[in-house]
Amino acid sequence: MPLLKEDTHAQQSKLAHYCKTGIKPDLIGVIEENLHHYRRLVFNIGIDTIETAYPITYRFLPDEIWDKLVYDYYAEHKCKTPQVWRMPLEFYEYCVEKDIQSKLNMPFLNDLLHFEWLELEVHTMDDMTYPSFTTKGDWLNSPLALNPEHRLVKFTYPVHILAATELEGKAGDYFLLMYREKESGKVQCMDISILYAYILEQLQNGITLQAILTEADTLFQINDFEMLKEHALNFINDLKQREFIPGLLNT
């Protein structure tokens, strides 16, 4: 049998619901004129957290639209994470689930929110174990070691390249490599082509560059293996210089 009586539970629920919605509750023995402080404090924490996580979207959307979006989110959504800094992920998921971008006729909104969340996620995500690697060996025929603290993402809009005001009409296939530098912890972004996204995806799977390029030559109908290899090696060298690829996997 629950120790907490239904009536006490109900009082707590009413106060919590008021904090989420701002709709005045019927509570026993409260100081009416002080109740609004709870709504204000709760709502401000939520707003501050979301605005800090999504500064581009916040600045881009007109105030009345942003305010309604955040209000609706707080009123309708039940935040699941006990860690407030992870809560903005739920805001992004809410916007996707409710198809806010269609309602606002902003088809790039999901991509924009996703991009902003990724920056936060990559910066803060738990440290991952780097694979054991060597810098000497056959770079074409050995699996390569990658910085594990990264995300490879496809966008429909180039939210990582253009300002939000320039996104309309730019639908296409865009690929972003976002990673965290091991020493500084800084987040770096690279806009990459579909070919390089394919190469990276295959490298993640432990496939050698030689095998990837052989497949890609046909898949992308390049039919010029030497040119493909030259471009790919330039890309790999760039990633080596960035220490995204520190070496060859120790097998």
Binding site: Q12, I45, G46, C79
Partner: peptide, 17 residues
């Protein structure tokens, strides 16, 4: 409360239960 985090400190009813 009711499976929703509020990220602030709400007062508990001062009650025996």
């Amino acid at each position: 409360c009711d499976n929703a985090h509020l990220y602030d400190l709400l007062p508990i009813p001062f009650r025996k239960d």
